[in-house]
């Protein structure tokens, strides 16, 4: 390809981005745009898949049949979200096999929040309320992302997420209005999940060179700090309704900015957990590897069956 046609392609690409139109799978795109998307979408997919584990831990111990059915449906949704996102990444030429290998080898990242343990039933409530709540803020913004298949996956996911957050809030509500022990269990869950949830939005804008380029390409539509602020503002009000206290002494309303100000995030802890120092990093990967190994015979059987069927078909035709 000569220099001229590359710059024509680039101009077309820029035009589409400027016009708020979507880039589609077979379109020309800068290689870095493609790689950036693969990284973001596959990490997102891994997060959905690994995110099943903390809650899966409580399916067998859910307090009522209603809660159990709900939790099963939610965890099944997260598996679906992983699938939507893996297929979006595959449209960029990344193979499912490679993504799976990267997850299982520990090379790929997923949201650090899922390396924290679910110690009590209230954690299931806190995850739905806070973690899914934060995910929704991020995902609503991503519905406007510039890559078509990613945007469409986000729209589908957002439709399903709202029940995730509501069921979590409902659990917190019941506990908050329950016995003293139940209320303190809810408060304890909030205390443990609050800060890791704020970290889900990623580093501060000033420390995030990555996201500048993503914003230019309209892969990301709002900055990490903007999204985090939006989440804090809405969640503080919800905590008040529950009668629970956000574990941040610096939290206060700023009437000039019309936003809540909040305390400093412990980025050292974030880095420590990213690098494998969380309580559950090893357990999560171990569980994924075991699932892959134990499910291997099913995939082998499916392929063997299909091969046999094909042989029989051609045998009969001959």
């Amino acid at each position: 390809m000569d220099q001229n046609s590359v710059s024509n392609d680039q101009a077309r690409f820029d035009q589409i981005i400027d016009a708020e139109e979507k880039i589609e799978p077979r379109d020309w795109m800068p290689e870095k745009y493609r790689l950036n998307l693969i990284r973001q979408i596959s990490q997102h997919a891994h997060s959905e898949v690994v995110g099943q584990l903390p809650e899966g831990n409580w399916i067998g111990r859910a307090p009522t049949l209603r809660r159990k059915a709900t939790l099963l449906a939610k965890v099944q949704d997260e598996a679906g979200h992983g699938l939507y996102l893996y297929s979006a990444a595959e449209t960029l030429g990344e193979s499912r096999e490679k993504m799976m290998d990267d997850l299982l080898s520990g090379k790929a990242k997923y949201a650090t929040i899922f390396n924290y343990p679910t110690l009590t039933w209230a954690d299931v409530g806190a995850i739905g309320w806070l973690v899914d709540g934060a995910a929704i803020v991020n995902q609503i913004s991503l519905c406007q992302t510039s890559y078509g298949p990613y945007a469409r996956a986000m729209v589908r996911i957002c439709k399903e997420e709202s029940f995730h957050m509501r069921q979590g809030f409902e659990i917190m509500q019941v506990l908050s209005n329950g016995s003293h022990a139940q209320k303190s269990m809810a408060q304890d869950a909030l205390n443990r999940w609050w800060w890791p949830t704020l970290m889900m939005f990623g580093p501060h804008d000033s420390d995030s060179a990555h996201s500048q380029q993503s914003m230019k390409w309209k892969i990301k539509r709002q900055s990490n700090d903007e999204l985090r602020q939006k989440f804090v503002d809405q969640t503080v009000e919800q905590a008040k309704h529950l009668g629970l206290t956000i574990p941040d002494e610096d939290l206060k309303w700023n009437s000039e900015r019309s936003h809540y100000e909040f305390g400093a995030i412990d980025w050292d802890e974030f880095q420590r957990v990213v690098k494998g120092g969380g309580l559950c990093n090893r357990g999560r990967l171990h569980a994924r590897r075991r699932a892959d190994e134990e499910g291997g015979w099913v995939r082998d059987a499916l392929i063997a069956y299909e091969e046999k069927r094909c042989k029989k078909d051609t045998g009969e035709a001959a």
């Binding site: 699938l83 939507y84 499916l302």
Partner: peptide, 22 residues
């Protein structure tokens, strides 16, 4: 609506039902 991996058509249909029409 999207895509998925499956060994044959019948299995693809079942997986599509579980993935996209819950």
């Amino acid at each position: 609506i999207g895509s998925l991996h499956a060994a044959d058509g019948a299995q693809a249909l079942q997986a599509a039902r579980d993935t996209y029409t819950r």
